[in-house]
Design a protein around this nucleic acid. Structure first.
Lengths: 218, 218
DNA sequence: TTACATACTTAGATTATTCTAACAAATTTG
DNA sequence: CAAATTTGTTAGAATAATCTAAGTATGTAA
């Protein structure tokens, strides 16, 4: 069974591979805030346990078992986030730190009960998919708001970043998942966009923000 | 801030002191399933941090700060047990292992919300008191069933042991907290007792069991 | 294609938590 | 009280996870 530390490495490898394709030792080290030698030796350890394949100076690749183990940790994290929001009254900006800890609890029934109580959710409070109990994660094909055209109407469905700061920024503008957004214009100079939704007739969003908002065209 | 390991030592010291008065290194080692040298060196470490006072060959004594820290861990443990039983449908025999893990989570709001959702409970599912947010734990004066007299009527209010095996034994006889028990007789030879309650007109309980059932005379 | 920068590895050390072996103090018992 | 037993300590080592320093491989760029 993976230690909490090993689970964190597996999770990072899984997420980085999804975001970027190949994962280098330095990507991994940066992502986990550890030094490269630390990441290097942990990768060797993960390889001994059959969770990754690794050759010197090559990218780190998760094995099938490694992917499943990682997905099951991510499942626990996202179920926990959903539970905290839906059943315990947390805001979506408050759940990450707690879930980072609870994801390492070894108690199948605890997470099964969360799952049941939540009605077997498929996405977490930030729109990210929750892997199933077999570690299978469905792919959604959302596009960033930044890739949309002026005059399109879209629905906000997920985020690529769930940092507290970003979520508080969104809270400040009452931006929530499910909202219908209308794109009014895009500034050619800095790629900022002016959109409207609900009681907000005109909000300007920077490119940085638009890249982090994932939408589905209606 | 105490590590999970340190928290476990504090908790053991607190519980052992309540049960037995003085706590020796070997008591502590036995309780935590570690060797005496391990307990010895951890006690020195706890002393350096101001949680215990210790002199060679003398009993280990928690300081005021140590007691508070321990009580707050126990608070997290017992709130969690109550939450699992009352809000997540766990049986009282299933909660200990999960709570042993969750008690080490650092997330004040998580436990505050549990407390609120439970209506600020003062006892856990096994009748043990839940320390308050300042680490104060009220003392109840229950007596073991084994100390009661024949023909007395008592109410089952707590347990001195919450092992899965004992709880399953109680489940098998529908023994729950709050039940009114009538004591019919005591066998002089082995101190076993015959009692009745609810739909159970006659149950024989061994001395071992009677010592673990805490009751209040009605 | 040599040279530089970046990425990676190795070596060696540190901290937390644990162990066993060996010895010492304290307590119990004949 | 002396011997035996129990309890506790010290010393030394192991493992997991981390670091810094120093050297090596890879890839880019002049």
């Amino acid at each position: 069974m993976a230690s909490s530390t090993e689970e964190n490495y597996l999770k990072s490898l899984f997420n980085l591979a999804n975001e970027q394709g190949e994962v280098s030792i330095s990507d991994l080290a940066q992502n986990l805030h550890v030094s490269m030698p630390t990441a290097n030796s942990m990768v060797k350890n993960l390889q001994k346990q059959g969770w990754v394949v690794y050759e010197k100076y090559k990218p780190v690749v998760l094995t099938k078992e490694g992917k499943k183990a990682a997905a099951l940790v991510i499942r626990k994290h996202r179920l926990t986030e959903m539970f905290l929001v839906k059943k315990m009254g947390f805001g979506w900006e408050e759940v990450h730190e707690v879930a980072e800890q609870i994801e390492h609890i070894h108690a199948p029934k605890f997470f099964e009960r969360m799952d049941e109580m939540l009605g077997f959710p498929t996405i977490d409070p930030h729109g990210s998919p929750i892997p199933d109990a077999q570690g299978r994660m469905q792919e959604f094909s959302y596009q960033p708001l930044s890739a949309c055209k002026v005059d399109q109407e879209v629905q906000l469905t997920a985020l690529t970043n769930s940092s507290t700061e970003f979520l508080e920024f969104l809270n400040g503008r009452s931006l929530k998942l499910g909202l219908h957004l209308k794109i009014h214009s895009r500034e050619a100079y800095d790629q900022s966009m002016i959109i409207s939704y609900e009681n907000h007739p005109s909000e300007t969003l920077s490119e940085k923000v638009c890249e982090r908002l994932l939408v589905r065209v209606i």
